[in-house]
């Protein structure tokens, strides 16, 4: 088997592979920069919690309309946002920290979701929701994922400056930002919406359990390759798309489920970056090179 047979032929031959590839590209464009901002805001695990929180909404959408992408997407979006807002609210009005209340809400949410699905659906449906079906993504699904990527990039381009300052120096943004110091909170909220949106996009393809994989793994890997925010985001996009291609090919040739394959390839990318990347990796730690002259 030539490289062409291995890497190009499956996409030329099968429409479902091309659709999956397009979905991966759209997901990568949105998830890359959002993941970078999550890492920079030290919210990596929050993304994980939110991806699980999406489930009951998706399950209710599933009960109401069957395996409809839009119903499950909207339900998941509302559930994810509700958990994010409730956790933020609880941490503000009680003594519980935000990460603890996040954990509490997403566990409730996840258990409720699994219960709802198993009450009505068969096990196959549950597997679809939990592990995704990127190889079966239809036109509506593609539109949804592409729409989410478009909205994400437009919003990020618009709010780039305050979002970055809010990560870097929130006190400064409160002092100078205007809107009576609430610009930072507003940016945080918009950003949470973007995270949930991208998780909803991801769960179509990768399932609720692994939607966050394509967001966090490339973002974590990118830290070992780039130093500026823009280059970090571009690197994360590229790594996510490469993981998508690799995972799809792996799943095609070895007949493996696509979602875990994609996330595992992204994970392999992370381990490679960790070992070999040019910025702060194990390689630079063990073989730092000669120090500069001045």
């Amino acid at each position: 088997m030539t490289l062409y047979d291995f890497a190009v032929d499956p996409f030329l031959e099968f429409a479902f592979m091309r659709r999956a590839l397009a979905a991966c590209l759209a997901l990568s464009l949105g998830c890359g920069p959002v993941g970078i901002l999550l890492v920079l805001r030290r919210m990596s695990l929050m993304g994980d919690a939110m991806s699980h929180a999406v489930l009951p909404g998706a399950a209710i959408g599933f009960l109401a309309a069957g395996l409809s992408l839009w119903a499950m997407g909207i339900g998941g979006f509302l559930a994810g946002l509700a958990v994010a807002l409730l956790a933020g609210l609880v941490s503000r009005v009680t003594a519980l920290r935000e990460d603890a209340s996040f954990a509490a809400f997403y566990l409730i949410s996840l258990a409720g979701g699994v219960l709802i699905v198993s009450l009505r659906g068969s096990n196959v449906d549950l597997m679809h929701v939990l592990f995704g079906t990127i190889l079966a993504v239809d036109d509506a699904g593609l539109l949804l994922v592409a729409g989410i990527a478009t909205v994400t990039l437009l919003v990020l381009a618009t709010l780039y400056r305050p979002l970055v300052v809010e990560c870097f120096d929130p006190g400064f943004l409160r002092a100078v930002g205007g809107s009576r110091g609430r610009l930072g909170a507003l940016c945080h909220l918009v950003f949470l919406v973007l995270v949930v949106l991208n998780l909803v996009g991801g769960f179509q393809a990768l399932g609720t359990l692994m939607a966050v994989g394509l967001m966090m793994l490339p973002a974590a890997s990118a830290r070992f390759w780039a130093e500026g925010i823009a280059t970090l985001a571009l690197t994360a996009m590229a790594l996510a798309f490469a993981s998508g291609i690799g995972g799809l090919l792996l799943s095609f040739h070895l007949n493996l489920p696509s979602g875990p394959s994609i996330v595992l390839v992204a994970g392999a990318g992370y381990l490679l970056s960790l070992a070999l990347g040019p910025v702060g990796s194990l390689r630079t730690r063990w073989f730092p090179g000669r120090h500069l002259a001045a």
Partner: peptide
């Protein structure tokens, strides 16, 4: 200052 000192900004 609540500055994130390892933030990637120059």
């Amino acid at each position: 200052a609540e500055v994130e000192r390892d933030f990637p900004i120059d």
